[in-house]
Amino acid sequence: MSTGKISQRIQYFMEKREIDTCKLAEATGLDTKFIETMLSANIYPPLGPLIKIARTLGVRLGTFLDDQQTTDPYIVREADRTANFSVLAEKNKPASLNFFSLGMGKTDRHMEPFFIEILPESATRKTLSSHEGEEWIAVVQGSIEVIYGKETYILEEGDSVYYNSIVPHYVSCKGAVKAQIHAVVYIPE
């Protein structure tokens, strides 16, 4: 899915709910300039801000990701997995995270499962975010740093973490080699 489709979907729901960028910024606590840039430059935001936008617009996070509908069970083969979106380290900088949605076709889901490549660029600027819900992460390859509130944790291959995402947090690569994780995000309705 292209980033353009995501910004188009956000704009569609903004128009449908009669919410302009100023109202969206106020309701989400996000900077107006950030929202304007995200929409006009087709920049994919980190999950925290995207979840806040989805909640404010009254839709599931998956509404911005879904391109198709399937029946149960929904299976994603590793060979068929493709990056759905990337989060930039900064505007006009290389990607810091590549997200592969593992539930995109399951329209009645309550969780958002991902396979994520966390690139070393993710450690350059550590901006904590928070949102309602819970997250679970398991390290498949490499090492990651998890900042959770005022604490910092280093996780290695095989380690996992489960936390309440209302606490400000940030996940980045630890070291010069990309890390790979499985992550599940749950957002209550």
Results as ranks from 00 to 15, higher is better:
Asp72Val: 10
Asp72Phe: 09
Pro73Tyr: 15
Tyr74Asn: 11
Ile75Val: 08
Val76Ile: 07
Glu78Gly: 05
Asp80Pro: 07
Arg81Thr: 04
Thr82Pro: 01
Ala83His: 06
Ala83Pro: 10
Asn84Trp: 03
Asn84Thr: 14
Phe85Asp: 03
Val87Phe: 08
Ala89Phe: 01
Ala89Pro: 01
Ala89Val: 06
Glu90Gly: 04
Glu90Thr: 09
Glu90Tyr: 12
Lys91Met: 09
Asn92Asp: 06
Lys93Arg: 14
Ala95Pro: 02
Ala95Gly: 10
Ser96Phe: 04
Ser96Met: 10
Leu97Asp: 07
Leu97Trp: 10
Leu97Pro: 00
Asn98Gln: 14
Phe99Arg: 00
Phe99Thr: 00
Phe100Val: 08
Gly103Met: 03
Gly103Phe: 01
Met104Tyr: 15
Met104Ser: 11
Met104Cys: 13
Gly105Glu: 08
Lys106Ala: 05
Lys106Cys: 07
Thr107Asn: 08
Thr107Glu: 13
Asp108Pro: 13
Arg109Pro: 07
His110Arg: 12
Glu112His: 07
Pro113Glu: 02
Pro113Phe: 03
Phe114Met: 01
Ile116Glu: 04
Glu117Val: 13
Ile118Asn: 00
Ile118Tyr: 01
Ile118Thr: 02
Leu119Glu: 07
Leu119Thr: 03
Ser122Trp: 01
Ala123Met: 11
Arg125Lys: 08
Lys126Gln: 10
Thr127Val: 08
Leu128Asp: 12
Leu128His: 04
Leu128Lys: 09
Ser129Phe: 04
Ser130Glu: 14
Ser130Leu: 15
His131Gln: 13
His131Met: 02
Glu132Cys: 07
Glu132Trp: 12
Glu134Thr: 05
Trp136Arg: 07
Ile137Val: 08
Ile137Met: 06
Ala138Gln: 06
Val139Leu: 15
Val139Asp: 06
Val140Asn: 04
Gln141Asp: 15
Gln141Ser: 09
Gln141Pro: 03
Gly142Ser: 13
Ser143Asp: 07
Glu145Ser: 15
Glu145Arg: 11
Val146Phe: 04
Val146Ile: 11
Val146Asp: 00
Tyr148Cys: 02
Tyr148Val: 03
Gly149Met: 11
Gly149His: 11
Glu151Gly: 09
Glu151Cys: 07
Glu151Ile: 09
Glu151Thr: 12
Thr152Gly: 07
Tyr153Asp: 09
